[in-house]
């Protein structure tokens, strides 16, 4: 099978067979992660949120592609009811038996940001949520729109998220496969050095995301090939 891409608008390059670690552009990371999330069964709208979240994390020095892959490997193919939260003021629990999908949780927190159910004024308990670092980009979105940084407290640390920065125990959060957390508006945020973007991805991660992405594609037919222009002579 040949996999040269030719969509100058959306399809990214074939990311298999690259060196062990490869620097992608943010665009490529967003595209690869959006397609992988769709391939794993998320709606188109949530797949876009996955692309946003992974790209944002890389722009802030965190391997978002790896975090997304770790989540998709657990969540692929599960129905919505198994992944979404039960929304209630002050407490968002899983609607199903397993952990909440961080992309659904994050984007829903963003949706409810100015509504009572999403209010952080009296604190909001969430979880358990899978790969919780993927929630951070959505907290940044909320922090930007409200103008207040947000504290995310979990059993082994606290992360502070502003519109465009992260501080606190982010390295601890990155390694958590699942956690409960309390969200609240942060009064003070520890001073930290600005995050450096890191767009390097592990080849194995990209290959595995590519496997999910290929689930969105359709095998060719002769007619589709000729529709796309094959069969004409270009030596004219």
């Amino acid at each position: 099978m040949m996999t040269e891409p030719n969509d100058p608008t959306q399809s990214g390059p074939d990311l298999s067979g690259l060196a062990t670690r490869t620097r992608l552009s943010r665009n490529e990371i967003e595209g690869a992660c959006t397609k992988a999330a769709r391939g794993a069964g998320l709606s188109w709208g949530h797949a876009e949120e996955a692309g946003f979240a992974a790209g944002w994390l890389h722009a802030h020095g965190i391997d978002g592609a790896a975090a997304l892959l770790a989540h998709l490997e657990k969540a692929a193919g599960k129905p919505w009811d198994e992944l979404c939260p039960k929304v209630a003021a002050g407490l968002w629990l899983p609607a199903g038996k397993g952990a909440i999908c961080p992309l659904i949780l994050g984007s829903s927190l963003s949706d409810y940001g100015s509504l009572p159910e999403g209010s952080l004024d009296a604190g909001l308990a969430i979880g358990p949520v899978s790969q919780p670092v993927l929630v951070v980009p959505f907290l940044a979105r909320l922090a930007r729109s409200s103008g207040h940084p947000i504290a995310m407290r979990f059993a082994t640390g606290t992360v502070y998220v502003g519109g465009d920065h992260i501080s606190g125990d982010i390295k601890v959060l990155v390694d958590l496969a699942e956690t409960r957390a309390d969200l609240s508006a942060a009064d003070t945020v520890p001073e930290t050095a600005p995050c450096q973007a890191d767009y390097e991805c592990d080849a194995a991660t990209l290959a595995a995301l590519g496997v999910f992405a290929m689930r969105t594609t359709v095998p060719p037919s002769e007619r589709s090939r000729s529709d796309a222009g094959a069969g004409t002579d270009d030596n004219d």
Partner: peptide, 21 residues
Amino acid sequence: VSEEKLEPRLGERASDEGAEL
């Protein structure tokens, strides 16, 4: 999107496979 070339294509819903994608 074609599996073969990762490029956008148009299919006929009545006769072509893949409409669920």
